[in-house]
């Protein structure tokens, strides 16, 4: 037993003298934890009530959910989320991995390059969304520039094209956050066992093969972590779309977070807004819960091994 054991056995904060530390420890923690639990429960409860402009009592079962799921707005938002989520994650993972591998070739100016790839993460999505909305606007942006340079038939008008507009969000999101994937991959590449690589080199294995057979397999855990974080971002995306397309043209780039906001504050239907928020949370949990389970299993294995 440690010498501290007798003190620990005493009921904590027994004496009045320890009241200040009791308060300092518990008050902030309880407020923080309390808001997470009560807010989540309260919004969930709201989603089962007939609330419209103000919160109301009563239980309407799944009526709000059915109503939300039946709207065109939600259907488009959900389809967009699938497209945006997968496109964004796949592209930013691959771009991040390629950049990390290139930066890992002992090149000069690595620090400068890394800073350049990461700076968009320090900037608000409102700022980047606004700037990209100018660049992608065919009347004043890249298309106009290329047209003015003489290639008059050049078209790059995805921003106002119902079918392609969602890809402008993918482009901007990849531009903004693939540096994050790069940073984590680069850290992963740097932590690969040097002896393993050396052994493969001595065996005469070529660099491409070394990457494929020795190095990349060790990056799986990082890949999954990054993918989960990027998916979490995709599911909750709001600012970027507001600044870039405003959900348009029409409602072509609607995403779940915008539907929630629309129900709550533009249509004044709190019950349905809450239902849409809970649906968003369920999509998020469908990503997070398997990930957490997988992590727990990995940790247990590591503890046992």
């Amino acid at each position: 037993m440690s010498p501290a054991a007798p003190a620990a056995a005493r009921p904590p904060f027994a004496s009045l003298k320890r009241l200040p530390e009791f308060l300092v420890i518990w008050v902030p923690l309880l407020i923080s934890a309390g808001h997470v639990v009560t807010f989540a429960l309260w919004t969930t409860w709201m989603s089962f009530t007939p609330s419209t402009l103000v919160p109301a009592d009563g239980f309407v079962g799944l009526r709000n959910y059915n109503a939300v799921l039946a709207t065109r707005n939600w259907k488009i938002a959900f389809d967009n989320l699938l497209l945006f989520g997968s496109g964004f994650v796949v592209l930013s993972l691959s771009a991040g991995l390629i950049l990390a591998i290139l930066l890992d070739q002992r090149i000069r100016g690595e620090n400068v390059l890394r800073s350049i790839f990461l700076y968009p993460l320090a900037v608000s999505f409102v700022v980047t969304g606004t700037v990209w909305s100018w660049l992608l606007n065919p009347g004043i942006g890249i298309q106009k520039l290329v047209n003015d340079l003489g290639w008059t038939s050049f078209r790059f008008d995805w921003l106002i094209d119902r079918d392609m507009a969602i890809w402008t969000i993918v482009i901007t999101a990849v531009w903004q956050s693939c540096g994050f994937a790069m940073a984590l991959f680069l850290a992963g590449l740097r932590s690969v066992d040097g002896d393993l690589v050396k052994a493969a080199q001595i065996d005469g294995t070529g660099p491409v093969r070394i990457y494929r057979r020795v190095i990349l397999p060790t990056l799986w855990p990082i890949t999954i972590t990054v993918a989960v974080i990027q998916l979490q971002f995709a599911i909750t995306t709001f600012d970027l779309v507001r600044a870039l397309t405003g959900g348009g043209p029409g409602i072509a780039t609607q995403l779940p977070a915008l539907v929630v906001y629309d129900f709550m504050f533009q249509r004044g239907n709190l019950g349905r807004g809450a239902a849409a928020a809970v649906l968003m949370l369920l999509v998020l949990l469908a990503v997070l819960l398997p990930h957490w389970t997988w992590r727990a299993i990995q940790n247990r294995r590591a503890a046992r091994g």
Binding site: F39, T43, L270, V278, L281
Partner: peptide
């Protein structure tokens, strides 16, 4: 998500 906290 922030959306779960907006109303509270």
């Amino acid at each position: 998500p922030q959306q779960m906290r907006l109303l509270p």
